[in-house]
Design a protein around this nucleic acid. Structure first.
Length: 938
RNA sequence: GCUUCGGUGGCGGAAUUGGUAGACGCGCUGGAUUCAAAAUCCAGUUCUUUCGAGAGUGUGGGUUCGAGCCCCACCCGAAGUACCA
């Protein structure tokens, strides 16, 4: 063989790695561990495009690099295989999701395998397999059986709190609970019936069932998310949607708000991603204030971040859903209040959001009393106040809040100015600057931060309020009316939820004939006739015997997609364990993920839930660390370049791009494979592609139709996807790997342009040819020239540094420079090739493995140690640096004159400071060695 | 609106983190080889230019002997979030 035959080479070495278990993780080794994780894919029917493997390539390079560095590397892969598209395919075709999933996974595997990833497939996991979801169910039961101890700041067994209830009721029990009104002593508790006790425990459990308001669409037979509703009707079909209370499972993730926030400080994630999570958690500091209500002994509690503005409060506003609305509405106003509540509840949350500008509200007829000056404050209802944030009620300070200001203006409510020398006649003053308060009794003359301290002090002293913290993070709804998810391992005894015994897990998905919800609105599992739990024989039975004393109906909802992905990284450590979710020995060896690579679109989903889940497991001492991922890199998206043609409105005429002028046109996307590199459209191909174009007329320029281009997300529906298989066919996996890295920084989004790939491909060919001067592999065993050694060590130095910085694109550049130099030096020395090929092997593993074996080595190159650069080859690498200036000069790095070799090494290796320069004399030039100034010449 | 990140040739992007801006690659131009094409190789390629040089990293200012990088103000783009009191 003469030419670089990537096809043959890649098939050969992929087989070799598989046959030799090259990448199966070593057990019982004394090597240090390193855990490189990718976000496992959802195996969709569409297959992979070149955007998908970007992160996998990066992680694979790093995993291979770490193996060369002497680490025992865990680099697993699996599939997040429960999910909606598969289920919808099942609804459409009747094919069981299991079968679809398997087919899709097989397809994914083939595509992934072609790219030469060093995954340890013996550790593959699939969330939809019962030996995996058994443990997801197990953890759900653990959540169910836990409450959150706010004093110890951790989750504990619910049994502990039951014991406390028995002894002391719920006074001073330090348990996280949103329901503040719950109050009972021990005798009361002990007198409760089981279901009454359970109802109370539901307020404390970390997994609990409750009535939640959802959007129910009768015709579609399903719950819709807010974004699936447009103008009050379903997006698909345009059916009407009603608000409906449904029993739904939720996870009390809010208990972990503060820890989720604090934990961010300890992990090396990108600032933008941390910021997204911080915003999502949404901590705000402020105060709770209790307002007396005129003629009532009830209090109205509000939360505010601006208690300093309390003397500017001229009205109160409640959310329409607020519990006290009924009590507060005076008979005279009842009619309009009811009308208002009805109209606002029929608006979907989406409408409410899109229609921010119109201000609506209604007066209740009641008054609150100002806590300090006892002035009467009218109580209003307005839907700009959200029921599920804070207390669902605000004290409205029109002079200090724009929304309150607008509301006051609209309804002619008094606006009291409390800011010294500030004009609030046009708009509210919302800044927190140094402006001092006036018209505010004991707060007069104080600025923002002083006033806050003082007022909270006063509130607490008089027992009419306290400092308080609020989080936006809401409980996560855990029920899905779906078939293709983990069954929730709960049955209902007299309506009371009871978990299955641990030994009875997994609770397997039942067979159903139909994957749609049932007619009476039960989730798809309701189609299993019947799905119930026999508590005596401890097995699922399909009998309708729910009035029987030992057979009870099972929960019909399934878990959401994020359940299985919240802990999978722990399972990879010990994927086949049937006794535990992961063995403690493995857990203590691998501990946590050292490098996690995946997309930032999971910032408020998977990446938040999994952090919560890990903390929960940590509280139960089931995992050794509280944050499972030390370092996270978000790979950017690879964008596709869509091809656009332009149709004159109302005609079948298509105008070439540069002839558009003032024609009114619609743009239509066409398949990019119909366009060549000069943006010329293959019109015949287009006509064959979609018959619609058969009778179209094309207005050409210079005999060609030129298309427009638009860079956007790669997607099948935009006809701009590039299939990695095609690239592998044409250029090989090694070229694809290198090119994807070469495109730009890993974290950045960047457009795909296939024409650029020839650069990296010819790099590999060049290197190949360097060692195949005629036809066969040929290598020079003599000592390499000093120029070549310089080139080599420069490359080792740069590439090693850049890999550690995840700057893979500059690595590729360095390799290219290196090979160009070696080529001009006519160097085919083994002394150079051996280390170079190890250096390159994480990027182009097949290519390097081939050359490695051509050099006569027998075992895989991946066992080889990474080369270290030798400074002695670099020191001579001088660069003159002419410079002219006068006066003093300061350097961050040290210079000293007359350096010995040791001094130079020190200078290069350590950052040193200051230089004593230079009583007025001007240097003529400065000598720079590999980037650092080491000498000055006068 | 707020938050985060970014803005460098025709394009993707480098720049030793304050020290020769435009590495490397694509594209383009010219040349060699070829009957021709592909492939390969060589040279050139920020802009202006009167060929001396001058300008130049979104805009305007500042710090510095020296700024793509630091500071201030503004403009533009991307992402996240949004009546969160």
């Amino acid at each position: 063989m003469g030419e670089y035959n990537f096809k043959e080479i890649e098939i050969k070495w992929q087989k070799f790695w598989k046959d030799n278990d090259t990448f199966v993780v070593r057990k019982n080794t004394k090597l240090p561990k390193y855990y490189v994780l990718d976000m496992f894919p959802y195996p969709s029917g569409a297959g992979l495009h070149v955007g998908h493997p970007l992160g996998y390539i990066a992680s694979d390079i790093f995993a291979r690099y770490k193996r060369h560095k002497g680490f025992n590397v865990l680099h697993p892969q699996g599939f997040d295989s429960f999910g909606l598209p598969t289920e919808q395919y099942a609804i459409l075709t009747g094919q069981h999701p299991n079968k679809t999933t398997k087919e899709n996974i097989d397809r994914y595997r083939k595509q992934l395998d072609r790219m030469g990833f060093s995954f340890d497939w013996s550790r593959e996991i699939r969330t939809s397999e019962s030996n995996y979801y058994k443990w997801t169910q197990w953890m759900f039961i653990l959540l169910f059986n836990s409450y959150y101890n706010i004093k110890k700041n951790k989750a504990e067994s619910i049994i502990k709190i039951i014991k406390k209830f028995e002894k002391q009721g719920n006074e001073n029990i330090n348990a996280y609970c949103k329901n503040k009104k719950l109050s009972f002593d021990s005798s009361k508790w002990n007198s409760y019936k089981d279901y009454e006790k359970e109802n109370i425990l539901q307020e404390y459990r970390l997994a609990f069932i409750s009535n939640v308001e959802v959007n129910w669409c009768e015709e579609l037979g399903t719950v819709l998310a807010n974004d699936e509703i447009v103008n009050g009707v379903s997006e698909r079909g345009g059916y009407s949607v009603v608000k409906k209370n449904m029993k739904q499972w939720s996870i009390r993730i809010g208990a972990y708000s503060e820890r989720l926030l604090k934990g961010l400080e300890k992990i090396d994630w990108s600032e933008s991603l941390k910021e997204i999570q911080r915003n999502w958690i949404g901590k705000s500091l402020g105060a709770s204030i209790y307002f007396e209500i005129e003629g009532s002994n009830q209090n109205l509690e509000v939360f505010t971040t601006r208690p300093d503005t309390i003397f500017g409060a001229t009205f109160m506003t409640l959310a329409p859903e607020h519990k006290m609305v009924k009590n507060l509405t005076k008979p005279k106003y009842k009619k309009q209040v009811l009308k208002y509540i009805k109209s606002s509840s029929s608006r979907s949350e989406k409408d409410r959001m899109s229609d921010v500008k119109s201000i609506t509200g209604v007066f209740t007829g009641s008054y609150a009393l100002h806590p300090f000056n006892k002035k009467k404050i009218p109580i209003w209802i307005g839907d700009y106040v959200l029921a599920n944030y804070g207390t669902g009620a605000v004290m409205s300070v029109p002079c200090g809040d724009q929304r309150d200001f607008d509301f006051a203006k609209k309804f002619n409510i008094k606006i009291e100015n409390i800011f010294n020398k500030i004009d609030v006649s046009k708009k509210a003053y919302t800044e927190k600057g140094s402006v001092v308060l006036s018209n505010s009794k004991f707060l007069n003359g104080l600025n923002y931060s002083e006033a806050i301290k003082k007022v909270i002090n006063e509130l607490e002293k008089n027992n009419i309020g306290k400092s308080s913290i609020n989080y936006k993070l809401r409980d996560a709804i855990f029920s899905r009316q779906r078939y293709w998810g983990e069954p929730i391992p709960i049955y209902f005894k007299n309506g009371m939820p009871i978990p299955l015994n641990i030994e009875d897990l997994p609770l397997l998905l039942p067979k159903v004939k139909n994957y749609l919800p049932t007619k009476d609105g039960s989730p798809p599992l309701g189609n299993a006739k019947f799905w119930a739990w026999d508590t005596i024989n401890r097995k699922v039975v399909n009998k309708n015997l729910i009035d029987n004393i030992e057979i009870f109906p099972l929960e019909l909802n399934t878990m959401p997609g994020w359940a299985g992905s919240s802990w999978y990284f722990n399972r990879y450590m010990d994927p086949n364990n049937s006794e535990e979710f992961v063995g403690s020995k493995e857990l203590n060896y691998w501990k946590e993920v050292d490098l996690y690579i995946g997309g930032s679109e999971h910032a408020t989903g998977h990446l938040l839930y999994s952090r919560f889940w890990q903390k929960f497991l940590f509280d139960h001492k089931l995992v050794p660390v509280e944050e499972y991922s030390k370092k996270l890199i978000n790979q950017g998206m690879i964008l596709g370049s869509s091809a656009l043609i332009y149709r004159k409105v109302g005609t079948q005429e298509y105008v070439s791009k540069n002839l558009l002028e003032n024609n009114k046109v619609e743009t239509i996307r066409v398949d990019t494979s119909l366009v060549n590199s000069k943006n010329e459209l293959n019109i015949e191909g287009l006509k064959k592609w979609i018959p619609e174009f058969k009778n179209s007329r094309f207005i050409l320029e210079n005999g060609k139709y030129i298309v427009g281009r638009d860079v956007e997300k790669m997607s099948k529906s935009k006809f701009n996807v590039v299939n990695p298989d095609k690239i592998c066919d044409q250029f090989g996996a090694d070229t694809l790997r290198m090119y994807e890295m070469f495109l730009g920084p890993i974290e950045q989004s960047k457009p795909w342009d296939t024409s650029g790939i020839s650069g990296v491909h010819s790099f590999l060919k060049k290197l190949w040819r360097l060692y195949h001067p005629i036809d066969n592999f040929s290598i020079n065993n003599q000592k390499a020239s000093s120029d070549s050694l310089k080139t080599l060590h420069k490359t080792i130095r740069k590439v090693s540094q850049d890999i550690e910085d995840f700057s893979f694109n500059t690595c590729i550049s360095s390799f290219m420079i290196c090979v160009n130099e070696l080529k001009s030096q006519k160097c085919n020395s083994k002394e150079i090739l051996k280390p170079l090929i190890i250096l390159l092997s994480p990027f182009a593993p097949h290519f390097c493995e081939e050359i490695w074996h051509l050099m006569g080595y027998r075992s895989s190159i991946s066992n080889e140690m990474y080369p270290i650069y030798d400074l002695k080859f670099l020191i001579e690498l001088e660069k003159e640096y002419p410079i002219s200036f006068n006066g003093k000069m300061r350097f961050k790095k040290s210079l000293s004159l007359d350096l010995s070799e040791n001094d130079i090494k020190k200078n290069i290796l350590k950052d040193q400071r200051t230089i004593n320069f230079l009583n007025g004399s001007q240097p003529k030039k400065i000598i720079v060695v590999i980037g650092k100034i080491i000498n000055i010449v006068y």
